[in-house]
Design a binder for these strands. Structure first.
Lengths: 328, 328
DNA sequence: TCGATTTCTGAAAACGATTTCAATTGATTA
DNA sequence: TAATCAATTGAAATCGTTTTCAGAAATCGA
């Protein structure tokens, strides 16, 4: 491997000068700059990044923790994150937690071992206190997720409002027996959604039937199971509010096997507005989240924190919108 | 930050001994081991990975290049890769090329700068010769892709056969006017598929109509455009063979707007057997690829190469299977 | 013309780990 | 008993950069 010393020797200069050229330090004469550049080209030199990281105490690498890559919502977030990362010369280490507490926690060791400069969390599995040993190892940013205890920047949307407008929509269509199907129980996001639904019900004097609450449902298969459970009930909801389009799609798919008609027998509303919402029949009514923008904001915040700038923690301007199709 | 020197001092031993404990070198007395471990725990010590990488000249990181993360086929491959990577203590750097030549090439610099030990390619955009400067910087493994020129391990399925059996299926259903819709033109995989289709046609004395060949189509939107193009033709194919379920789904979706009935007016066959194939209506007939297994094999090969073991380059035992649904 | 800046460059000291080498001890063998 | 060998440890070199420090050369102002 050719090192900076080889380049220096070949150019008849010192390692220091070569380094200065690489990092465009101002006080190097054009003449020497050219000597160095020629030497680098002739030798095909590239700086060794491990050495740079060690010396600079910086990796320019950010870990991004997602539950599953197969969920387009998260890959869209990544899309946004990646865009801003590239603009700022940062690399991304994409980590799949599979919603596993231990895996999630293990990835935090990346901070301790200095493999990454910071972490963006798109979901939370563990109690927040578990993260406390890592808080001083580098910035942590929450993206599309939040925790009451957390003292870090959070980029999030008003999920409460999202499910509120979704539920209002169902109520307007005449539904009174509305079920809820969401994600993890630790998630502030999930409870917010549940509360938005509750509020919309309470507004018209109803309460959420605990039999119709399904938690920790993430995938198409989970959705299918939910549909089976509902089909088996004596007293069924007439509408179900789900935490993701995938789960909703599973519900709709299974409804065809269970002889339950959507939306006549069961209205279904999703969350995210993924491609599948448009592809499935009947088309899925859903709450659109500007996923790419959330990712961008999260990474912008990360960059700001890394540069010790101020950042904006207010509930950001991005809004959730109801997209009405045929499932309600 | 606490370093190995801090641990050494705290334990009253040398850095060398601490290092030996970390790497469980055999000749350290239990007594000192305990001293070191206690010191590490008390100080909350984690080895700095940049320093380790520099010293060991090894990163334990493998880059995996995919065109797009939003395509479930590739995330499934990643799933398989990740599984084997974890078993071997390797980290994954997931890189999105967006089918961009320059981006693809840029990621190869990861090898030059020693940010990764090796690269797994799941698609090829550039001519193979472009990669030649990187071949001696670390192992490259092709996964689900190949190139005539390439001299590196390739994990691939018999795509020729895949499209052959798919086309046979169409022919059996009475189709004679069959179109082809595939990916990049550089891709050996794509040409193989086209050739499999040609062969099946030639077997019954037909040729592939060049008007019905669509290349560089990857997404749902691309599929929709293809459908529009077909709808505008005077002489339309009665069946179309697509390179991915996403494209096929786009075709089917758009057919509903164009008043063209699938499968009556146009039979559609996909590739991959992604979740969407099952969700869309009519259900998509497709060629199932064991994507996760391909990923596993690719990573196993990478591990073998890294350990300078032999590897198996034969067309591997994984087979493509026709999944018949309602679109044909 | 002389002192004070400003440019420009290189030697050497970091960064934090691992490994070689040599030294020391204790056990074993001839 | 002396010689050999294995077990255990630490000092120091090394991995490839960047940066500090100091010195030399060039420029500037009075």
């Amino acid at each position: 491997m050719t090192t900076i010393a080889d380049v220096a020797k070949h150019a008849g200069l010192s390692r220091a000068t070569v380094s200065r050229v690489i990092n465009n330090y101002q006080y190097v004469t054009e003449e020497k700059k050219k000597l160095v550049r020629d030497a680098m080209n002739e030798l095909g030199y590239y700086p060794n990044s491990s050495a740079q990281r060690l010396r600079n105490q910086k990796t320019n690498m950010i870990a991004i923790l997602v539950p599953r890559l197969t969920n387009p919502f998260f890959t869209n977030i990544i899309e946004g994150i990646e865009k801003v990362a590239a603009e700022n010369g940062l690399q991304l280490l994409i980590c799949q937690t599979k919603s596993d507490k231990q895996k999630e926690l293990n990835y935090f060791k990346l901070l301790k071992t200095k493999q990454v400069d910071g972490i963006i969390l798109t979901a939370i599995e563990n109690d927040w206190e578990k993260f406390s040993p890592f808080l001083d190892c580098g910035p942590i940013v929450l993206c599309n997720e939040y925790d009451e205890e957390a003292t870090v920047p959070m980029i999030r949307l008003n999920q409460f409002e999202g499910s509120y407008i979704g539920t209002r929509h169902l109520i307007e269509r005449g539904h009174r027996k509305i079920g809820y199907c969401g994600g993890g129980s630790m998630s502030g996001l999930s409870t917010d959604r549940k509360n938005g639904l509750k509020k919309a019900l309470e507004d018209i004097g109803l309460t959420l039937n605990p039999d119709w609450i399904f938690l920790k449902r993430y995938s198409i298969e989970d959705g299918q199971k939910v549909m089976k459970e509902i089909a088996a009930m004596d007293d069924r909801p007439t509408a179900i509010f789900t935490g993701s389009d995938e789960v909703a799609a599973g519900v709709i798919k299974e409804s065809k096997n269970s002889g339950i008609k959507v939306p006549e027998d069961l209205a279904v509303i999703g969350f995210d507005n993924q491609p599948i919402a448009e592809m499935i029949e009947p088309g899925l009514t859903t709450i659109e989240q500007p996923s790419e923008e959330i990712g961008e904001k999260a990474m912008e915040t990360m960059v700001a924190v890394l540069n010790e700038q101020k950042f904006d923690t207010s509930l950001n301007g991005l809004s959730l919108e109801l997209v009405v199709r045929d499932s309600t």
